[in-house]
Design a protein around this nucleic acid. Structure first.
Lengths: 250, 250
DNA sequence: CGAGATGTTGATGGGCCTCAATAGTCGTGG
DNA sequence: CCACGACTATTGAGGCCCATCAACATCTCG
């Protein structure tokens, strides 16, 4: 819908040659652990960039696992639903993140993934993936790392939901986001929340009203400033004091 | 301490020949996806059974990842700690479960694992593991499945902690345990809780007192009976009504 | 401009935590 | 075998954190 800044690709462009090598996310995406030789083998197996519109679903619970995805631009929300219709946001996925591991257990996705904005993805079909794993030791390594990161992130979320108070949860998440942006070369003290209040509140296991109050509280404490979705961390030390998660890299 | 039904192995026996093929857990452990040929290759790389005593740690946060483990008998609790000293139990691991994936991200464990009782484990050193992944397609497949299961389990736990009330959380966990025992060939309507109240309450994100009250409430509703750690499910349908998790296999 | 989505703020009530006391169970040793 | 202390579990009373309901403000976009 928006202007096509990139090279020619209409909505149904056929397997264009992907260039992981020129991608600015190569350091954190699949290529991160691949040698030059491996990378050229790998590139050929990545399907052309996939584009999905805001609010469009990437996959749903129960769908067969066909591919794993890397986010090139935009953002994806994954969530789980109960039989009563409530949902729990499992994570917000930003450029450089990999998606789809939840389907590894039985070749079917166990969660839903939806675009929070117009999003560009690289798609790696599972058939290619399995073949590549056979011949590329580096890819196996990267996969293990990515999967390990995902497990660690979930551990941390469980700790947050199970033990922390609302203020602490928010502080912890802001720090995490700060680290994320820092690792991607952006400012760690000023950034935009990629999601609406409603989704963030859900993710953090609280009511939107409570989240709003906690933002107000942190502002009053001169720890952060927030305007709409723009967050400024004014006192990083204080924010770290409010969070009690054990420090972690990434 | 119990009689050694297996071949000779005292406490420091060197790499005894493991027999996955004769293990009664072969259907759910590593061997589940291996062909006969693959299995014989695999067996040779599994270190001899490891025995750890109750309350002994298998690994701690920060330890280098040396091996992945399969539980042969006993039970292991994994948990995470905050900087304030509170802990969050991440999971209870029973015979047939695999352990240690949390270290894949950067070759160091990000959680702690401790034995809840005297426990027997099979150990697969990472060096062997990586080599085996190269030559055994079946092992890669099994690993992906196991890792996918772990991710799905955590998703489900996040949903439980983030959205459910205490009664619902307990009902959901009892059902899950029931399924586990059923899949292992035990009764799904009568079983023992493998952990003390304190740990289960922590895992479910509630105070031990609240857990106790919820047990009492479920008994009053004639849904379950509980005596110490022995649980009997008297009305499975009612229990499923109380839980609102979307049904899942495993 | 108007309708819907999004976000903030206030009032109220309830679910669950905390504190505390009691009871039951287990391990250890006299 | 029983006694003792430590651990585990249950039950009650009180209060707080946070969900809920509601009103209002602000932004987005056709």
């Amino acid at each position: 819908m928006s202007m096509a800044t990139t090279t020619s690709n209409t909505s149904k462009d056929a397997t264009a040659v992907n260039s992981c090598n020129h991608c600015n996310l190569k350091k954190i995406c699949f290529p991160s652990g691949l040698s030059t030789d491996e990378l050229s083998t790998f590139e050929g197996s990545v399907e052309k960039t996939l584009k999905i519109a805001k609010k469009e679903k990437l996959y749903s619970r129960g769908d067969p696992l066909t591919s794993v995805y890397a986010i090139k631009a935009g953002s994806i929300k994954t969530y789980l639903s109960t039989s009563k219709g409530q949902a729990q946001v499992l994570g917000f996925h930003l450029p450089g993140d990999l998606l789809g591991f939840d389907g590894f257990a039985d070749d079917h996705h166990t969660s839903d993934a939806i675009a929070m904005e117009d999003t560009l993805l690289c798609e790696l079909p599972m058939t290619n993936f399995e073949n590549l794993c056979e011949v590329l030791p580096g890819l196996r390594k990267v996969m293990m790392q990515q999967v390990g990161s995902e497990i660690s992130r979930h551990h941390s979320l469980v700790l947050t939901l199970g033990q922390m108070q609302t203020e602490e949860r928010l502080a912890t998440y802001l720090l995490r986001l700060s680290c994320y942006y820092n690792s991607r070369g952006y400012s760690c003290s000023q950034f935009n929340l990629p999601m609406p209040r409603h989704d963030l509140a859900n993710f953090l296991g609280m009511a939107p009203e409570t989240l709003s109050r906690m933002f107000a509280k942190l502002e009053k404490l001169n720890v952060i400033s927030i305007n709409r979705r723009e967050v400024t961390i004014d006192n990083m030390d204080a924010l770290m004091d409010l969070s009690h998660e054990l420090c972690m890299k990434d």
